[in-house]
Design a protein around this nucleic acid. Structure first.
Lengths: 322, 322
DNA sequence: CTGAAAGCGCTTACAG
DNA sequence: CTGAAAGCGCTTACAG
């Protein structure tokens, strides 16, 4: 059906190598042959088949994005930013959601090894042995996946410290920490660390609910928060899913915010900002995405890259603090 | 770096064709050679390179998804469903967001012609000539892109009729229609049609704001609604973006719902259902996605497919109606 | 500046 | 049941 480079070459009366050179606008090519070739291309409505190119170049110009889910505002926005950056660099995005299942992640790794993509961004919850990542161009957000895997993250410690200090300043006496514990070495752990440090500094008691729960089980943590830490008047939450659930729970319980409880949450990437009014530490996803793509492409090209890239969060005052 | 089929063949002492047959578990292959080959595969840690396969088979096993944006709950959920279905059928997803720009859509078409994907789902706002879609396996949601492009949609007329009838029943006297007019032949137009028919049936006046506005300009429509149709006590909205904006506007204006104004919206795919409480006609995205993938793969395989597939909406009673 | 040829890593009739 | 060979559509040294 569609024409091949061979037909174009015949029609233009040149060799296929010449057509290829015109296509990739190689510098040393005469204007006249360029014209001849372009004419033939137009006439035949020729579009180069990318499979041939990929095989001969041993590159796919595809970046795999491995995320737990896509229908979540944080990841949706991340993917949006990533696509924009990848596009600018001439790469396509292969979307792979792990659905919170490790088998799916392994499946994606297999696809990487198949060279379906040149590299991958892992935003994952699971443990993978470093062996599995060998020779693959991989970048991670927040989690430390292995010594050769660059990490892009926010300055979790500083931002969290700021948030907790803020709650103290605003008069909270019993401040709780609510989070889902990552089951890997992760920059996210610094959120709790910062909370602890600030509490100690002010000689305030610790009220921590921080467990590794499965997706959909976040409500258990909220149950525990209310059972074990009754009477908290401030809470620092590690992520927007939890924050939203807590927000709703407080509403259901008739607790008012900021009057009864003040709340600050990490992750400001809510879908509809005009409805949510939670005070948040917003991650600059646009900058982070750009960095991820840059690191990934550099790794693909065999360059040395920074092991850790930290970005600052933006503190967004909402209606859940005074 | 990674082993090739040739090395596997050598190690196993067979021809590469045999390795290929084992890989694709071709039926006529003896147990003994199968074992030999699998042993070699394991030892070499061999994973077949998909570029070779794609070139020789002239298939990519990739489906392109062309949507305006990904960071919107409706599209995010759609993509989520699509990926699940594609995965079940052995296809990967190439994500392509048009960013509300026709140049980007043309770019995506070019990539399709390059055989980067075997087919594409277009959820688009723009006009494309049928010529552009020639010989491509394309399926559309809601819009009629050409006579050979199957459309997957909901029963817009029936659902809308139900919604408007519902508002009448609940006592609304001045019911408005608020929508963004598609600039193509689209099933979405039936939403307004149904509204008009119901209004006529009950001898009620028409209050229509339905224009084709660019992304981000939806607020203009809401301005117009309040300027030109003062005092409406019921409104049927064509989509959740508009509905959310209207919801917030009413809140800002001190209008209460359902007391002052009752509202029903098409599209129930809000991100955080526990926060939004708009009465909606929810589209069964899971079923629609399944249908899209099925149609697409059938088209790719050269089969005949239905030109139009309609699904029923689910009416979800929220707090914006009595 | 350009052509002929080898090669990328697979699949698949064809012959045996 | 299996091997040798051609072919998928490109790119890229190599030679001229």
């Amino acid at each position: 059906m569609s024409a091949t480079i061979k037909e174009v070459a015949e029609k233009a009366g040149v060799g296929i190598g010449t057509v290829s050179r015109v296509l990739n606008n190689s510098p040393q090519i005469s204007e006249t042959t360029k014209k001849k070739v372009n004419k033939a291309i137009k006439e035949l409505n020729y579009v180069p088949n990318i499979a041939g190119k990929r095989l001969s170049q041993k590159k796919s110009y595809v970046l795999a994005i491995v995320i737990p889910v896509i229908d979540h505002p944080f990841f949706a926005r991340l993917v949006s930013c990533l696509e924009k950056e990848a596009d600018l660099r001439g790469y396509s995005l292969l979307l792979a959601t792990s659905q919170h299942r490790i088998e799916k992640e392994n499946d994606i790794l297999r696809r990487l090894k198949q060279h379906e993509a040149d590299g991958a961004l892992f935003v994952t919850h699971y443990e993978h042995s470093e062996e599995e990542f060998k020779d693959l161009a991989i970048v991670s957000i927040d989690r430390h996946l292995g010594k050769d895997i660059p990490v892009v993250t926010t300055d979790n410690y500083e931002a969290s410290k700021l948030a907790v200090e803020y709650l103290v300043e605003k008069g909270c006496k019993k401040i709780a920490y609510l989070g889902t514990k990552p089951n890997q070495v992760s920059e996210v752990s610094l959120r709790e660390k910062a909370y602890e440090d600030v509490m100690k500094k002010y000689n305030l008691p610790l009220n921590i609910v921080n467990k590794n729960v499965g997706h959909g089980e976040e409500n258990k943590l909220i149950d525990e928060l209310f059972e074990s830490h009754k009477g908290f008047d401030g809470v620092f939450v590690s992520g927007c899913t939890l924050a939203t659930l807590l927000y709703n729970r407080m509403k259901a319980l008739g607790l008012k915010t900021p009057e009864d409880v003040q709340m600050v949450s990490y992750d400001g990437e809510f879908a509809l900002d005009d409805i949510h009014h939670i005070t948040t530490l917003e991650q600059p996803l646009d900058l982070m995405a750009k960095k991820c793509v840059e690191l990934l492409i550099n790794k693909i090209d065999g360059k040395e890259v920074d092991a850790l890239s930290k970005f600052n969060c933006r503190f967004i005052k909402g209606e859940t603090t005074k």
